[in-house]
Amino acid sequence: MIRVNGQAGGANAGESVSALLARLRVAADSRGVAVAVDGEVVPRSAWDSFILSETASVEVLGAMQGG
């Protein structure tokens, strides 16, 4: 089961990071968003080509007031 931001089932195995972000309404050119899969950064340039596996743990992060 894929996990997205700690929630199970937020994405489908075989889909790209870009497809997931589109469903989360994150624009492809949006500044201030970063993605990690299984503890590794997925650079913006790889969002289209990075395919999520069945056990992927995805973190979609953005700017928050802090510090």
Binding site: G6, L24, G32, L61, G62, A63, M64, Q65, G66, G67
Partner: peptide, 17 residues
């Protein structure tokens, strides 16, 4: 100014950046 990085909230209004 400092900013933190947290899980995005699609329902959040306004953009800090």
């Amino acid at each position: 100014a400092t900013v933190a990085l947290r899980r995005i909230d699609p329902a959040a209004e306004g953009s800090l950046t």
